[in-house]
Design a protein around this nucleic acid. Sequence first.
DNA 1: AAAAAGATACCGACTGGTCGGTATCTTTTA
DNA 2: TAAAAGATACCGACCAGTCGGTATCTTTTT
Lengths: 201, 201
Amino acid sequence: MQTRSEETRTHLLEAALRRFASVGYNAASVDDICAAAGVSKGAFYHHFPSKQALFLALLNAWLETIDSGFQAVRQETVPETLRAFTGLLPAIFAAADGHLPMFLEFWLQASRDETVWQATIAPYQRYQQYFTTLIQQGQTEGSLRPELDAPAAAKTIVGLAIGLLLQRLLTDDANWEKTAHASMEILLHGLMQNDSSGEKP
Amino acid sequence: MQTRSEETRTHLLEAALRRFASVGYNAASVDDICAAAGVSKGAFYHHFPSKQALFLALLNAWLETIDSGFQAVRQETVPETLRAFTGLLPAIFAAADGHLPMFLEFWLQASRDETVWQATIAPYQRYQQYFTTLIQQGQTEGSLRPELDAPAAAKTIVGLAIGLLLQRLLTDDANWEKTAHASMEILLHGLMQNDSSGEKP
DNA sequence: AAAAAGATACCGACTGGTCGGTATCTTTTA
DNA sequence: TAAAAGATACCGACCAGTCGGTATCTTTTT
């Protein structure tokens, strides 16, 4: 059971998530968030030193869910792992559906705010490192083309993932998931050693 | 020669671009922009009905430069055209360097404002259509794999372009251009009919 | 061609309202 | 009953947009 204090904190976080997602960081005022949480402004500033601090708390929670997803997808071969990763994307972001604009908001804040930038750039580099290692592993096991520049290929994967997510933001594409899979298949075809192997059954 | 009125308008546009780029759309106040332009607030509202209208003027100017770039890259074969397109990317966005966060911010706002949405979504769909046609053309000429889903492949290309640009936003990667080329080569490898053909000399 | 009349461009003080944050007081918890 | 948590009133800064009025350029009239 949560104490009343913990409940208030949770209510504030959830309300902030909702408000940020629907109207954006700037437009969602502290009063706004407090009203949505059914809590006073005094309570807000008791739990968080600033609006930005609450924002960062949300950001970290978000990043942790992504990280934990990464742990779960390891498969037998690297191409299979990459396919599993694609299958993961909709799951991660369907759960946070409607929060996608916030993803952009984070990014934007990061590009202009030193504090947020630190919190954003670190996990980003971690993801990039993750895929670089994965690709090198695929080259070792012989499933991926050996002449690939592993860091560049990693950036390609991460870039494609981000780009697809943004497109989903812009167009309410019903079968976005299908597009994501098709894209990853094209990319895999470009990464893999020989074209006949590793195809879907 | 510009009339005084035209000069004022130009000054406002240039100053707004500078202010939006450095502090963002919301943070750049109208007073701010007027000060940077060396012009009064009255002049501002004489030339533009609102702050948003001025932004749309900037957005359209930028989109036109992209569109004109698209016209210039047509090559002999489709893979060559795609490579030329990649070579174009740095040029387009070096021109708009530092302005990217501002467009991102506006994009975000676009997703919540019906009027702005129209001005933003239209060019995006135009680009997607452009690449869909290009890919179908490549399938006809035999350079691209016939089993490709052309619209999905187009989304992949556009998505990758957007994703790479956003990555560039976060990391001030010195040889981003090289990465972009490597990415496109991987993608091309996944799109093309046979792997031996169409390689760079 | 000079004066009058009108249109366009521009100025800057002002308004009505919002916002993040603080100070102070009250209630709950342990 | 002391400390933690929450409520309320309030502050100073800021901001998009307005408005009455002035300067400058263009057209018409004489």
